[in-house]
Design a binder for these strands. Structure first.
Lengths: 201, 201
DNA sequence: ACTCAATTTTGACACTGTAAAGTTAATCTT
DNA sequence: AAGATTAACTTTACAGTGTCAAAATTGAGT
C-alpha cells in the first residue's frame, strides 16, 4: 500500500505533471501553461491529469504549493547568507523575496495571482504557505514592541517587499536591467530600517 | 472627418467594446473577460473587435487605460476629502488606492497584472498611467529631502500601499470582511507616517 | 452614379478545459 | 491461483476561446 511509488502505469504522474507545469511556466509565462501541454510533456493523454487534480485550478494550486517551498528556501538562504543581526536578517528576507521574484516570476504570479487562490479557497490551511509566513514571523519578531500584535510589523514588512517586488517585476520603476543596487530597492530597505523605531520630526 | 463620432455602422464600437469589457470584468473577474463576449454584448459579430484592438491584449490595454482614469479619480477624491495637511494628503492617497482596489479589483488586476502591460509594452508613454503617477508625485513631494531624488519617497509609498492592497485583496490578511479600521491598514499607515522623518532608537 | 476604403460578417482553424464512456493494468478477495 | 474490483489512463466528443482570410455591407467623396 505504498502511497505514491511506482504504482500503476506511469510511476508518479502527479509529480511529473507538476514539474511539467513549472517548466512551462518558467519558459513561457502564465500564458504557456495548459493542462494539455503538461499532459503531453508527461507523455500521457490530455485527459489523464483530471484524475490527479481538480482541473486546471487544481494543478495551479499544486504548482503554487511547490512554489512556496522554493520561495521559503530563497528567504532562508538570503537570511543565513548575511550578518546575523536582527536588522540584517530583516533585510535578508527582503533580498530573498526579491530574488525569488526575479528568478521565478511565473511562480510568484501563480502563488499570489488570480488562481493562486485568494478567492478560490481559504489560504489558511496550506502547509507550504504557512511555513513561508513563519519565516517572516521569525524575522519580524525582534521588532515587535512588547505586548503588541506581531501582525502589525509583519503586515508592514510584507506589504512593502511584496509591493516593491511586483512593481519592479512589472517594470514600473523603469529599471529592470540595471543592477539591483541602483534601483529603488535600497530606498525601500531604508524604510525597512525604520521599522521598530520611533519617529522624531 | 470627425474622429470618433457616429461613423459607419455601430456608432462607436470601440467605446462599446471597452465598456462591455469593464462590465464583464466587474461581474465575473478576469476569467469572464473574452473578446467574443464583448462583441456579443456590443451586438456585433465575434471578429469585429479585431479592427479596433490588437487582439485581446489590445482590448485589455484599453481597459487598463480606462482603469487608470478611474483610479486617478479615486485618489484625488480621497486626497481632497481629508484634512489638507501634507501628512493627511499622503494618508488620503493610500486610502484612495485601497478603496479603488476594493471597488474595482478586476480593473486593478488588469492594470498591473499579467497582460496589463509590464512585459508586453513599455509603460512610460501611457497618458493615463502617467497622470496617476503625477498625483502620487505631488503628494510625496513635501516629504522629499532637499536635493534628493523624489523617486525614493515615491517608491516607498507606492510599494507599501500597492503591496498592502494586493495582499488584502488576496485575502492574505484573513480579514476581507471586517471594517478597514480593524485590518492591518492602520499599521501600514503608521509606517507611512514615518516617511520623511528620522529614525531614533 | 461610381469608386473606394473603412467596417463588419462569415467561415474556418487550432487551440483550450471538461465530461462521459471505454480500456487497460494492478490490487484485493476468496 | 482465479475472478472481481478499483484505480489509472485513453478515446471520443463538445462547448468555448483567439485569430486569420475572404466575402459582404455600409458610408462618404468625387
Amino acid at each position: 500500500m505504498s502511497t505514491a511509488k511506482t504504482r500503476h502505469h506511469h510511476g508518479d504522474l502527479k509529480r511529473a505533471l507538476i514539474q511539467a507545469g513549472i517548466d512551462l511556466l518558467e519558459e513561457g509565462g502564465l500564458e504557456a501553461l495548459s493542462l494539455r501541454k503538461c499532459a503531453a510533456r508527461a507523455g500521457v493523454s490530455h485527459a489523464a491529469p483530471a484524475h490527479h487534480f481538480a482541473g486546471l485550478p487544481g494543478l495551479i494550486t499544486a504548482i503554487a504549493e511547490e512554489g512556496f517551498d522554493i520561495f521559503s528556501k530563497y528567504m532562508t538562504d538570503a537570511i543565513n547568507a548575511g550578518e546575523q543581526t536582527d536588522r540584517e536578517r530583516l533585510r535578508g528576507i527582503c533580498r530573498g523575496y526579491l530574488q525569488f521574484g526575479l528568478s521565478h516570476s511565473g511562480l510568484l504570479k501563480v502563488m499570489f495571482g488570480e488562481h493562486g487562490l485568494g478567492v478560490h479557497a481559504p489560504r489558511s490551511d496550506n502547509r507550504e504557505e504557512a511555513e513561508a509566513y513563519l519565516i517572516l514571523r521569525g524575522v519580524c519578531a525582534p521588532f515587535v514592541p512588547e505586548g503588541e500584535d506581531p501582525h502589525i510589523v509583519e503586515a508592514q514588512v510584507w506589504s512593502l517587499i511584496h509591493g516593491f517586488t511586483l512593481l519592479y517585476l512589472g517594470g514600473e520603476f523603469g529599471c529592470t536591467d540595471a543592477p539591483i543596487e541602483d534601483s529603488p530597492f535600497e530606498a525601500v530597505m531604508a524604510l525597512i530600517d525604520r521599522i521598530g523605531t520611533q519617529a522624531t520630526g
